[in-house]
Amino acid sequence: MALRHKPLTVKLAVTALAMFGFGFALVPLYDVFCDLTGLNGKTAATAASAEAAMIDTSRQVVIEFVARPNKQMPWVFKPEVSRMTVHPGEIHIMNYLAENPTGRMIVGQAVPSVSPGQAALYFHKIECFCFTQQQLAGGKNMLMPLQFYVDPALPSQFSTITLSYTLYDVTNAWQDSSAVSTQPGE
């Protein structure tokens, strides 16, 4: 009696287990989906190639830089200028000033977000301080560079791109794992 139910029962149980796995598979799938569509304004977590395409001098794009330390992060953190007008294809460098006013070493991680989300697909970072965690001893300050260009393929409806960085204090995670397991965007 029970024997004839076994194949179907096993199949269904395996389906349930597979769906449990699928729940976790949604995490990387979501990232792929974000990369394809620019959902949620995520930018690539790795460097883009420096060989920029042709410079499109026929139009200009305004880049707005928003930088905010998270409220648990004591650093002062701001861009050198708050906006920049660029031609698509031009490579630019933007410096961010970071200052650690406390008396202890703090590790920071900047999390980028681009709005409108779809524009994230056309915003390429050649070099960025957000690719790695940044250490800063107490009382010190530093300049953190971002090298970027806007893809000339940027659709014309985007005239302004806002790049936001939220800076988090990840000292605890850094100490726990010696900066191995919590690299962002992997």
């Binding site: 409220k71 992060m73 406390t102 008396g103 988090y168």
Partner: peptide, 19 residues
């Protein structure tokens, strides 16, 4: 003073230095 100024990461305690 430090916790009021700088908050405590990973908790609800905020850094009030800027507020």
């Amino acid at each position: 003073i430090d916790i009021v100024l700088n908050g405590k990461a990973g908790t609800s305690m905020q850094a009030y230095a800027k507020q």
